[in-house]
Computed example of a mutant assay.
Amino acid sequence: MTDETHNAIEIGRRAVLRSAGAAVVAGLVVGSASDAGAQGTDAMPATARNEAPLGARLQGVQHFGLTVQNMERAYQFYTEVLGGTEVFRHGDFQGDGVQNTLLADQEIEANTRGVNPRTIGVPDLRSGAQRLDVRFIQFDNMVLELLQYREADQPMGSSKSFAEPLEHMSPAFPRMMHICFYVRDDVDFNKFIADLEAESARRGMTQVRANRTVRVTTETDRKAAPRSANTNRVTEAPSDGWELIYCKGPEGEQLEFVKALGPVKKRFSEALAQRQAIVR
């Protein structure tokens, strides 16, 4: 195969994946950036807005942040596999202002415990011994921010973070969060999951594994489960019409992919309309 043929196939594959994987956060299931209370549609003057309830001063969720161990691997997954678009990247953040803004509460905690801040995962951005890099990735109505704290002698995009990753990634742990992507209504959900796993495996991202709706006790069992076991379809109200799978991302992060169809989609639409009426 020539390099030109390989490149053409790769471009085609990415285009297909972007089309299938175009997604938004489930919490904003039926909204879009243009209808989510954008500025310019409100008649409320600024003086009144500043005295309004806190919720009326918000425009919604701007981004979710994910601290990663391997920046390039995570970036490849969220852009090349899931089809997100890079907004910009910035890095080498260090200094007193950055340390105070991001880590003051953790430094207070370390002082209270009488321990070295590093032992509880607090980097030293103040002196520049460690640095912070970020990359913003745009999806339909949500931005994902990838963050990496690294040693100063490590290059940007390093595969090695300052702190070791958490070993226990069960979604049952308090404070554990997940990122949820919204699959388009006309997409074959079972095939989407199969393609997601295959594309990730092709790139060596072995952590990207979706759960099944049938009981499995080994990885062999999971792989052997029928494709129809990829998707959990909820039929009981008020979640009727909800389809979902849980999946680990390349960093071990918890991901969810959902569809919201029929009754549950209507409930989200009605809630969004009520929310917009209150804010405006």
Rank of each mutant, 00 (worst) to 15 (best):
H178T: 10
A194T: 12
N190Y: 04
C180W: 00
S200N: 07
V183Y: 03
I193T: 05
Y182E: 00
I193S: 04
F173Y: 15
N190V: 11
D185L: 07
V208W: 05
E199C: 04
Y182L: 10
A201W: 03
A229D: 08
D185K: 15
P171G: 04
S200W: 04
T217Q: 12
A225Y: 09
V208L: 08
T213L: 13
R203W: 06
A201C: 00
P174M: 10
K223Y: 08
R202L: 09
K223Q: 15
N190S: 15
A229C: 03
A198N: 06
T231Q: 10
E219D: 14
M176Y: 07
R212Q: 07
R175L: 13
T231W: 06
K191L: 12
F189K: 06
R222G: 01
A198V: 01
T231P: 07
L196M: 09
S170H: 07
M169C: 09
F173L: 15
R227A: 06
M205S: 03
R222D: 01
A201T: 00
V208Q: 06
A210L: 04
L196I: 09
F181D: 00
E219N: 11
N190A: 13
P174A: 10
R212E: 04
S200V: 05
V208P: 03
A201E: 11
M169K: 14
D186F: 01
T213N: 13
R227P: 05
A229F: 02
E197I: 12
F192L: 04
S170K: 05
F192C: 00
S200P: 07
N230Q: 10
P171V: 08
T213V: 15
P171W: 04
F173R: 15
K223F: 12
R209Q: 14
N211A: 15
V214D: 11
R184M: 08
V183I: 12
V214I: 13
I179K: 04
A224G: 08
D185V: 06
G204C: 01
H178W: 12
Q207N: 14
S228L: 09
P174W: 02
R209S: 10
V187A: 01
F189R: 02
K191I: 07
H178N: 12
H178I: 04
N211E: 12
E197M: 14
N211P: 01
D195K: 09
V183T: 06
A225W: 08
A210G: 13
K191Q: 15
T218V: 05
V187F: 02
F192K: 06
D185A: 11
V187N: 00
S228Q: 11
T213S: 15
P226V: 03
A194F: 04
M169A: 06
P226H: 08
